[in-house]
């Protein structure tokens, strides 16, 4: 069984993101970039399935500029077997990414596509579901536990009031939530080994996909500011302020 894991390169989760003064986007110069944390979890899960003998090959794919290769290398160092880079310098919106991924799926014919539930830059939380729709495959989003059988998978998912368990037919789309696993650290020998692993590059044209943009970004602005608060000296003062000033209790 082959597993395809789409991964995205994003601004690191622990960087404080700042909006550019001209409101055209966020500062990216000299900013640390990393693999999207949810994608890391997806790679980890795929590699664990392989180690458990439930999956044969783990292929990672990333769409975006040349530097995505670095992120793909990280995934290879985590234990993926092979990488595919869809090279594009254009803005890729989720529908376009889903179409590119569909083209890769058509070539690779994996049994499972394991994505992150959300990329922490755009916070769209869309790509896996859209790919599921384009392929007509079953989907299990926000997965916190996965049991893979021969032609199905049982997935526990995080929902608003608690947990839900689904049995999905393979081939299927699964998107990883935070609690699915703890991704491993990559060791130096594995990073060296990853350099020998194959990475193919395609352009959207090679894949026969046109990457139309369906929305235009008019402006990127700072979040609404909160007015500065005060420190209170004691529990009594706190209760007094909440009762008599804020009037919330």
């Amino acid at each position: 069984m082959k597993i395809l894991v789409p991964i995205k390169r994003v601004i690191d989760a622990y960087v404080t993101v700042r909006v550019k003064a001209d409101q055209t986007g966020v500062e990216t110069a000299n900013v640390k970039m990393s693999m999207n944390p949810f994608c890391e979890i997806a790679v980890e899960e795929a590699v664990r399935l392989k180690e458990a003998g439930k999956a044969g090959e783990v292929v990672v794919v990333s769409a975006g500029p040349e530097l995505c290769k670095e992120t793909l290398r990280n995934a290879l160092a985590m234990g993926a077997d092979r990488a595919i880079h869809v090279l594009s310098d254009d803005e890729l919106q989720p529908l376009a990414i889903a179409k590119l991924l569909k083209a890769v799926v058509d070539k690779e014919e994996p049994q499972i596509v394991m994505l992150g539930k959300q990329a922490i830059d755009g916070d769209h939380n869309q790509t896996g579901q859209m790919l599921g729709g384009l392929l007509g495959w079953a989907q299990a989003t926000f997965a916190s536990k996965i049991d893979v059988e021969a032609d199905s998978a049982t997935v526990t998912r995080e929902i608003d009031g608690g947990l839900e368990t689904l049995k999905i037919k393979l081939p299927a789309i699964i998107t990883a939530d935070l609690r699915l696993n703890e991704p491993r650290f990559t060791s130096l020998p594995n990073i060296m080994k990853a350099k020998q692993k194959p990475c193919d590059t395609f352009t959207p044209d090679d894949l026969g996909v046109s990457i139309e943009q369906r929305y235009k970004t008019l402006k990127v602005s700072d979040p609404p500011a909160r007015k500065p608060g005060v420190k209170v000296g004691s529990v009594e003062e706190l209760v007094d302020k909440l009762r008599n000033e804020a009037k919330v209790i």
Partner: peptide, 20 residues
Amino acid sequence: DTFVRPTYAGNAFKTVQLGD
């Protein structure tokens, strides 16, 4: 056709015009 949505964990609000 014009909507605002948070990105980057609410650090940057995007105003977008949607064609579809």
